[in-house]
């Protein structure tokens, strides 16, 4: 690849023309065209991911300049996808809904060990607890990478939880090897869907990344509002009539008791209320003077 980037020029070799034509055909044959970042994905992994997507999406890896040229000569709408072509890019062709595509790709993410010299994509933490290693030189290796280790009950244990690399740190060979042996895989590999073109609309990843909990919250709120409105406006429907009746009944009860309306329906509660008041007043009084209240209570 490196050898060839040199002589892109006025004359375009036939194989490149073919490739561009091929891309354009794929574009017109699918409802959705995505630009996918494939940075840092080893080719074996990429192969696996492509395989997993079979039937839902085709991933085509090719050089950016060919992608660029293919898009450039497509319709005005599609042309705008050019701005997402950068770094290591692949094209994705599908007939699926863009949102669904995004979800599928997210699900397809896998974790991988970090390589020597790799940059920590997040804080890398080694949790305390037992390991599967039998006692041996591993203890010293752990310790020399700043992980407090020891031996307990015939097993190597990590004594304390440690952050061994901060996000952005370069992970040296020794640590990378230890992390691999501890089966800590800090690197997340996945097809990074930057944008999808579908039927005249470009969906960027921020739009595609749906926050389901927000929607659930919205639904909850909408349902509550509908309920509040129908009860507060006393709109009778099958869904609300029970509550409306209960509300009216409870209001009448509140009114009767609070206004001390003497009616057969509520006399029991009024008696009970008076009795409870008497008991609580009696209690207060008896706390001050036990003799103030007859011991009948």
């Amino acid at each position: 690849m490196a050898a060839e980037t040199k002589h892109h020029s006025t004359h375009i070799p036939q194989w490149k023309k073919d490739e561009i034509e091929d891309i354009k055909k794929l574009i017109s044959a699918h409802s959705a065209v995505g630009i996918v970042g494939v940075h840092g994905i080893p080719s074996s992994q990429l192969q696996l991911m492509r395989k997993n997507l079979r039937g839902m999406a085709d991933v085509k890896v090719c050089r950016n300049n060919l992608i660029y040229r293919a898009l450039e000569t497509s319709s005005d709408d599609v042309k705008q996808m050019n701005k997402y072509v950068e770094d290591q890019t692949a094209l994705l062709f599908s007939n699926e809904d863009p949102f669904k595509l995004y979800r599928i790709l997210e699900k397809g993410r896998a974790s991988a060990p970090i390589k020597a010299g790799g940059i920590a994509p997040r804080d890398i933490v080694v949790q305390k607890g037992p390991t599967s290693f039998p006692p041996g030189p591993i203890v010293g290796e752990l310790q020399s990478s700043g992980i407090p280790a020891g031996i307990e009950g015939g097993k190597v244990v990590i004594r304390e939880t440690r952050t061994v690399a901060k996000k952005g740190d370069v992970v040296n060979a020794k640590l990378a090897s230890i992390l691999a042996r501890l089966e800590i895989q800090p690197v997340e590999l996945g097809l990074d869907l930057r944008a999808v073109y579908e039927k005249g609309i470009i969906y960027e990843s921020e739009i595609l990344a749906i926050d389901e909990t927000k929607y659930i919250g919205d639904i909850t709120q909408a349902v509550q509002r509908a309920f509040n409105l129908s009860i507060n406006a006393a709109y009778p429907s099958k869904a609300t009539i029970g509550t409306l009746l209960a509300k009216a009944a409870s209001e009448s009860r509140n009114l009767a008791i609070n206004a001390e309306i003497i009616m057969p329906d509520f006399i029991g509660e009024l008696l009970a209320k008076a009795n409870t008041q008497m008991l609580s007043l009696a209690q207060v009084a008896s706390q001050k003077d036990a003799n103030a209240i007859s011991n009948k209570l």
Partner: peptide, 19 residues
Amino acid sequence: SALEGVNIEEAISKAAFAA
């Protein structure tokens, strides 16, 4: 008819009868 004279915004946000 039920909504006549009702301030919808208010009725929406006022917690309805909470049995």
